[in-house]
Design a protein around this nucleic acid. Structure first.
Lengths: 117, 117
DNA sequence: TATACAAACGCAACAGTGTTGCATTTATTT
DNA sequence: AAATAAATGCAACACTGTTGCGTTTGTATA
């Protein structure tokens, strides 16, 4: 699929509308369903950025099927508004209050990326 | 304002529709504008949960005006779907790749809360 | 107290997104 | 080539975010 190709080319997490404009011939519903299926299949992971926009990124090789984005940090640049998957920035342990069990963590850092700074 | 009262009563982060059903007489636009203004004034903070739903929570006393939710961890229970502000669970330092500067962090933990477990 | 002005409110409206059903097209199997 | 399954596109609908505008409510001033 071209969608996967496109996502593989970058380590950015792309929104559906960004993907739509890349291939303008594809219907948004088709894309929506493709992304949904990819996510269920554990091929891509979904993240919501600081503006509430849903974005998708390819899962890396070492991305455990079920846990996905719990493994790395996402970075949202406030200049270029791109969202990066910081593949090698791992998420530290977080101590939860008693009674709370964790099954997934999402860390979203906002700031300025290396190209914009 | 009743909205602030309602948010103060709980440490949960409420969505706009949850707030709307609490006081059914209020127009959704009025509520929207109130929440927007409260957020700009640094009285409440806004967080997007794992489903992309925007939620609002009262800022605690020690919530620094500008940085808001960077101070504590948010917890999304996958049973009751409530979102908790874990006021006392602080966010650990995260080492970013060179060139990336951070101005805010958002940590969202998914799991089962103390009441549901 | 009556008038003038400002703030809060509610409605209409529109765009974007998530989601489903259905019909049509495209592939695959026999 | 026919039958079946899968992928695609469209219509439609709900919900959210957002803005403009007119109306109501409240406050201040003459």
């Amino acid at each position: 699929m071209k969608v996967l190709d496109e996502l593989s080319k970058t380590h950015l997490a792309l929104s559906q509308s960004e993907l739509e404009s890349t291939f303008r011939k594809v219907d948004r519903i088709t894309l929506y369903r493709a992304l949904r299926d990819f996510e269920e299949a554990g091929i891509v992971h979904k993240i919501v950025d600081m503006n509430g926009t849903t974005r998708f990124a390819i899962c890396s090789d070492d991305c455990p099927d079920a846990t996905h984005n719990e493994e790395h940090v996402h970075f949202n640049c406030q200049r270029c508004h791109k969202m990066f998957c910081l593949q090698h920035t791992h998420i530290p342990d977080i101590q939860l209050p008693p009674g709370f069990t964790h099954s997934g963590i999402n860390v979203l850092v906002q700031g300025v990326c290396n190209k914009c700074s």
